[in-house]
Amino acid sequence: MDWLAQWWDGVELWLVQLPVALQFPVVMIVILPLCLGVARLIDRVADWGAKDKGAVVEEIDEPEKVPA
């Protein structure tokens, strides 16, 4: 795992030394897809957890419409 830490330190040092005008697009290209993927994963897990597999969905009767 030492190689991973050294690689990460090199990437971090490279990124910090870039001008801010280049840091922003580089970070957005990496962070946006990563955050989108995590958000989708959380959404799917929440949807899966919210489903009650034993529950029966009851239909609600709509009130009768009165002509105007």
Score class of each variant (00 low, 15 high):
Met28Ala: 12
Val45Gly: 02
Val57Lys: 04
Pro63Phe: 10
Leu34His: 14
Asp47Met: 04
Leu13Arg: 07
Gly54Glu: 15
Leu4Cys: 02
Gly54Trp: 07
Asp47Ile: 03
Gly10Ser: 08
Gln23Glu: 12
Gln17Val: 00
Val45Asn: 01
Leu18Phe: 10
Asp43His: 06
Trp8Thr: 10
Gly54Asn: 14
Ile31Phe: 09
Ala39Asn: 02
Trp7Ser: 06
Lys65Leu: 05
Val66Thr: 14
Trp8Asn: 11
Gly37Arg: 15
Asp52Asn: 05
Val38Ile: 10
Gly54Val: 13
Val38Glu: 00
Glu62Leu: 11
Asp43Lys: 10
Ala21Arg: 15
Lys53Ala: 08
Phe24His: 08
Glu64Tyr: 14
Val30Gly: 01
Ala68Val: 09
Gln6Thr: 09
Leu18Gly: 15
Leu34Thr: 13
Val16Gly: 10
Asp52Gln: 14
Glu64Leu: 15
Arg40Tyr: 06
Leu15Tyr: 14
Asp43Tyr: 08
Ala21Met: 13
Val11Met: 06
Leu41Cys: 05
Val38Phe: 12
Ile29Trp: 06
Leu41Ala: 07
Val38Gly: 01
Val26Trp: 05
Asp52Gly: 00
Glu59Leu: 07
Ala5Gln: 10
Leu18Ser: 11
Met28Asp: 05
Trp48Pro: 00
Asp52His: 06
Ala55Asp: 00
Pro19Arg: 15
Leu32Ala: 09
Lys51Thr: 07
Ala39Arg: 12
Met28Thr: 10
Val57Arg: 11
Gly49Glu: 12
Asp9Val: 15
Lys65Tyr: 02
Ala5Tyr: 11
Phe24Val: 12
Gly10Gln: 12
Leu32Ser: 03
Trp7Gly: 01
Met1Tyr: 03
Gly49His: 04
Asp9Pro: 09
Phe24Glu: 14
Ile42Leu: 08
Cys35Tyr: 06
Trp7Val: 07
Leu22Asn: 15
Gly49Asp: 02
Ile42Asn: 13
Ala68His: 12
Val27Lys: 15
Asp47Cys: 01
Glu58Thr: 09
Ala5Phe: 04
Gln6Ser: 13
Gly37Ile: 09
Leu36Arg: 14
Leu18Ile: 08
Phe24Leu: 14
Pro67Leu: 00
Lys65Gly: 00
Pro67Trp: 00
Leu13Thr: 13
Arg44Ala: 06
Gly10Ala: 13
Gly37His: 09
Asp2Ile: 15
Ala68Cys: 01
Glu58Trp: 01
Ala21Gln: 12
Ala50Arg: 06
Pro67Ala: 00
Ala5Asp: 12
Glu59Cys: 01
Trp8Met: 07
Gln23Met: 08
Leu18Met: 15
Ala50His: 07
Asp9Leu: 15
Arg44Ile: 04
Leu41Tyr: 13
Pro63Arg: 04
Ile29His: 03
Trp3Gln: 10
Gln23Phe: 05
Ala46Ile: 07
Lys51Arg: 07
Leu22Pro: 03
Lys65Phe: 09
Arg44Ser: 01
Asp61Tyr: 10
Phe24Met: 11
Glu62Val: 06
Trp14Phe: 15
Trp8Ala: 14
Leu15Thr: 07
Ala68Ile: 05
Val66Glu: 11
Ile60Gln: 08
Leu34Lys: 14
Val27Ala: 02
Asp9Gly: 12
Leu15Val: 11
Lys51Asp: 05
